[in-house]
Design a protein around this nucleic acid. Sequence first.
DNA 1: ACTTCATGTAAGGCTAACCTGACACGTGGA
DNA 2: TCCACGTGTCAGGTTAGCCTTACATGAAGT
Lengths: 68, 68
Amino acid sequence: MNNKVREFREKFGLTQKELGEQVNVSRQAINAIETGKFDPSIWLAYDLAQYFGVPIEILFLFEEGKRK
Amino acid sequence: MNNKVREFREKFGLTQKELGEQVNVSRQAINAIETGKFDPSIWLAYDLAQYFGVPIEILFLFEEGKRK
DNA sequence: ACTTCATGTAAGGCTAACCTGACACGTGGA
DNA sequence: TCCACGTGTCAGGTTAGCCTTACATGAAGT
């Protein structure tokens, strides 16, 4: 699933580790989401969207055919 | 996690089984979400919100302290 | 009374979404 | 040169989000 996490994270001037601390997940979890290794849980998606101040549907791109 | 799935489902005049077929999950999955047994994946949350025509944040209530 | 339907729930199984710890690499500063 | 940092990735483990099958209940229709 494509998303704009890296884009927003860099705009906010944070490292993967720092963003992980803000939303209470490991830096590997942030990395895995940015690199498309797996999709976030609904809570993590919400926390990230809240942190960046955008709706979930803006931060994460739900394009049909890109499901795993 | 509280949500308005049952509310919207009944407004749309569907059974749990029928809603499950619309979003490609079992009726037990719909039931479990309505009764708060577990939270949906981000994709299922998206599909349900899309089906009902509302944002994810409207269909699902992300209240702090109600995490599992 | 019998059946059908909608719902609730439980058991058992599978995979995805996390975790920690570790190692590798490139960049930049002292 | 050496070290710290940021990132990528892998191995191994746990838990949550599904699945199918099955059984029980209540409401409603015949």
